[in-house]
């Protein structure tokens, strides 16, 4: 099934060799695969807060990046807030979209599929009776998340569906959202 045509190489800007190299190296040295992701957040005023994202731990040592990233979160005006940033739940959606989309690019590269455009739209339902404490049977979080991809690529519809499925299978944020995680919140 490997025809000569398949050797024409796709370029989605993903360095698959480097990723596969890292995969190989980490499978031989599982300690180096232990990462810690971090964020620090400071309240500004009202529902507004600013999160700094800087160092992380991985490959056995502290890692620093070229610049510190900031994410501002707030709430829209109908929540009597000033809308200085996206709501935290929308940041969660952007995390999911970013993770799945990066995965699609990587899987496509690995499968030698050239992507022309990848667009995701996300919608998550939420019943505010949960967070407002109106009905104890209603959960606080999303009651479901719907992600719709529009993908233009040199591939059949089936191949594109397989890309999207494989990206979910390997996505950290998809896992974080779909499965329970132990969270401990303490006062220092």
């Amino acid at each position: 099934m490997n025809t000569l045509i398949a050797t024409a190489s796709a370029d989605n800007g993903v360095n698959v060799e480097a990723l596969l190299g890292a995969r190989q190296a980490l499978s031989e040295a599982p300690e180096a695969a232990q990462f810690k992701w971090r964020a620090s957040c400071e309240w500004i005023r009202g529902t507004r807060a600013r999160t700094h994202i800087d160092s992380f731990f991985g490959l056995g040592e502290e890692q620093r990046r070229k610049q510190v990233h900031h994410v501002e979160t707030d709430h829209p005006e109908i929540f009597a807030a000033e809308d200085h940033g996206a709501t935290p739940v929308e940041i969660v959606l952007s995390g999911l979209a970013g993770c799945l989309t990066a995965g699609i690019a990587a899987v496509a590269q690995n499968r030698n599929i050239q992507l022309h455009s990848v667009k995701a739209t996300l919608e998550a339902g939420m019943d505010l009776q949960g967070i407002l404490g109106i009905d104890g049977d209603v959960r606080n979080g999303f009651d479901g998340v719907k992600v719709t991809y529009a993908i233009d690529a040199n591939a059949s519809r089936e191949e594109i569906e397989a890309l999207v499925a494989q990206s979910q299978k390997r996505s950290a944020v998809f896992d974080i959202i779909t499965n329970p995680t132990d969270v401990s919140v303490v006062v220092a």
Binding site: E161, A162, N179, P180
Partner: peptide, 26 residues
Amino acid sequence: GRLAGVRDGKALFSGSLRNVCALADL
């Protein structure tokens, strides 16, 4: 979905059901 945890007498199931089925169908 996949049984992902048990908390306070509740079984928690993964939200990945659609995807594992889509993968199996494909």
